[in-house]
């Protein structure tokens, strides 16, 4: 296989992995949300993320099968790859924490993905552009929903304000990775940083929160070096496929 298609496949997989793993995490809220209406709201986001992941995995499978003459499917890619093969952003695999941490992660992630997808929409990869166009509609809502929650909690009660501050402290160091390109990355992520930061600052200002300075940034997810959490996520998620190889569900 040539290097270009290898890069392309890895990049698609990295997008698939990030959206799937965050979907898996958000799915943990289903039936456990702070109020019914918001249980339903975050579950809608979960379904969007899993839908995006499926689009990417299906596309990756098509490319792999063309290039390598294999029989990959969306499920073989999601359920039969190992921890070191997953290329998701570290922030997606972190435990949910409280509602503050969950909605802040969504805000950071979706604000970034919106910029990524806007780039992909312009790419000369038709399939990718189509997935991006569809996803942008969903992500616009994720950004709106999560930024409103950031403002609400930041400017809510003393307790919610403090919880937001704790969440920022816990998550900020996982945002640097967004903008450090992996060798396979097809868009210039470094160039997105300014725009992203602008959005974060605007929302934080309304939320009476501030952006931390000089934080050391964690990296590794894009190259398969993860936190300890991912192993458990995969062990759980992949258990049936691993226990009953080849079975149809």
């Amino acid at each position: 296989m040539n290097k270009l298609s290898n890069y392309q496949i890895n990049y698609i997989l990295s997008l698939a992995d990030s959206t799937l793993i965050l979907g898996q995490r958000n799915g943990e809220w289903c039936a456990h949300g702070p109020i019914l209406e918001q249980d339903i709201a975050i579950t809608n986001i979960t379904l969007d993320l899993i839908g995006q992941a499926r689009n990417f995995y299906q596309y990756a499978a098509t490319l792999i099968n063309e290039v390598e003459h294999k029989n990959e499917t969306e499920d073989s890619l999601a359920y039969l790859r190992n921890e070191r093969d997953f290329k998701n952003l570290l922030i997606s695999e972190l435990p949910n924490g409280d509602w503050a941490q969950t909605i802040l992660r969504q805000f950071f992630f979706s604000s970034f993905m919106l910029l990524v997808f806007e780039e992909l929409e312009k790419a000369n990869d038709e399939q990718m552009a189509a997935i991006a166009t569809k996803s942008i509609k969903e992500i616009n809502y994720h950004v709106k929903w999560s930024s409103e929650w950031v403002i609400r909690l930041g400017d809510g009660t003393e307790e919610s304000h403090n919880r937001m501050k704790n969440a920022i402290e816990a998550l900020w160091m996982y945002t640097g990775e967004f903008f450090i390109p992996a060798d396979y990355e097809m868009i210039d992520v470094a160039s997105l940083k300014e725009k992203w930061l602008e959005k974060i600052k605007a929302v934080f200002e309304e939320a009476t929160l501030s952006v931390p300075e000089n934080t050391f940034m964690q990296t590794g997810g894009k190259n398969g070096i993860h936190t300890e959490h991912l192993g458990y996520i995969l062990a759980e998620m992949q258990s049936l496929q691993r226990t009953y190889p080849g079975a149809e569900w």
Binding site: I35, L36, E37, I40, A41, N44, K144, W145, E148
Partner: peptide, 14 residues
């Protein structure tokens, strides 16, 4: 149920 009108519209959507 919703805390304010904006949230009510979004909850209605969801």
């Amino acid at each position: 149920h919703a805390a304010d009108a904006q949230m009510a519209i979004e909850n209605a959507r969801d």
